[in-house]
Design a binder for these strands. Sequence first.
DNA 1: CCTGTGTGTCTGTTATACCGGACAACTTGT
DNA 2: ACAAGTTGTCCGGTATAACAGACACACAGG
Lengths: 252, 252
Amino acid sequence: MTTQTVRARGIDRAVEILEYLRATRQPIGIGDLARRLKAPRSSLYEIVDSLVQAGILEIADEQGRIFFGSSVYFYADAYLASQPLVRSGRDEVIRLAEITGETAQLCILLGNKYTVAYMQPGSRLFRISSETGVLVPIPWTASGRVLLGDMTEEQVRAFLPPEDFVLPNGRKIEFGEFLDDLRLAHDRGYAVTTSLADEFTCCLAAPIPDQITGRPLATLCFVVPVHTPDERRAELVQLLIDSSRTISTRLS
Amino acid sequence: MTTQTVRARGIDRAVEILEYLRATRQPIGIGDLARRLKAPRSSLYEIVDSLVQAGILEIADEQGRIFFGSSVYFYADAYLASQPLVRSGRDEVIRLAEITGETAQLCILLGNKYTVAYMQPGSRLFRISSETGVLVPIPWTASGRVLLGDMTEEQVRAFLPPEDFVLPNGRKIEFGEFLDDLRLAHDRGYAVTTSLADEFTCCLAAPIPDQITGRPLATLCFVVPVHTPDERRAELVQLLIDSSRTISTRLS
DNA sequence: CCTGTGTGTCTGTTATACCGGACAACTTGT
DNA sequence: ACAAGTTGTCCGGTATAACAGACACACAGG
């Protein structure tokens, strides 16, 4: 009499919980959670309790909903301290936002997605900014074009899921068109996209290359209004390139 | 024949690993880890693998040593964003920075450390700013004096590790001196420090009290040059007090 | 050369972590 | 009032996760 129930490991459940919270970014009750994850309630109560004890989760409100706890902050602090790239990248982003007044970002690859690792909003009246840590399809971004700049056609094909070529407005990016963008970005050492992920923004991105392999590890980028004049764009691109060079040398 | 081996749960092992890394703040090999945690190697290989898959840990170097992975960074980001205090505090910080032109911050306690949860740089030629999310010893800051304002001597002693009383320049803050600062901050409803964590800054901090308990949850603060005149300081302190009252009522 | 100490992988065994299901105590809506 | 849905806790059975131990391999040192 095999009940064919997959008896999951506690760790896997725990990871599922954390990933769920990361994706939704809001507290959830344990009952709800059990339904979403298709996990037995009784198990979740135990696991959540362990994680709450450790401060990895916290009871977020009176209804007993749970969310991340302060421990993850300490973990992140240790992680950042261990990552020279992010550490110096942050400083440079803050500096760039200050001297230009534009929104500056440090972007990295996470699996086959793109994400903003750190962002400093500009000082314009109407700010354009994106949330950090949200996973975005690579073809939607200028930074993505820079980050894949050194891949072959086959590598890109294998790396990106087809659905990622569909923009938020429904338009589909042709693969050939995207590949041309990659080549251009690779040759010029930066990428520019206008009205791609949305109508009113222009993104400028430059790679931070690994000192040894030369492969892009991350990007620095500005997010500016589409109507920004070409001269200003060129000026900003130059700043990105200078900054990324600074970081790159500082890393070795 | 009871072998009296405590067969630990995977989750507990995982938590132990994370806590160990948090404490030591540096990568460690799995063999070493097994020895330190008195855990079987074979189990650790499995658990570490799960956590690496989830991005919670990463292989940090060629020797296969492990450390925190990028996922914890995103968990922490979600955590900060989830704090209602941070959300409404953010708006007020932006407003304060705009109307005064000074660098304004929202500061909170995380465990027994202090951190800047959100910061808006001022519009001076030379800006003074600190990074958000970096954990700082409480005695180094004006906000710290406000945040502990309602603790008894014994509570403070138990709460703060002795090494946190040593400033970046090596000077040691006497416990009695620190306690006097706390009392003063508590009585006046704000704290001012000059040339404490560094030579050229003056910090002004006011508490955001819990509506019910009255205990300080966080602080609003300005970071200004040391030579800022007294009248200006008084003016800024008043703004902080008004703003924190606004936030405090908005939270209930 | 051999010896000792480190990896990372793969067993078979068994103690138990996970599970399903039952329970009381609360809401909520009609 | 009742029914239908919660939520947090408890408990006993069993599938299996955690364990101990063995294995091949790669070093380093004498």
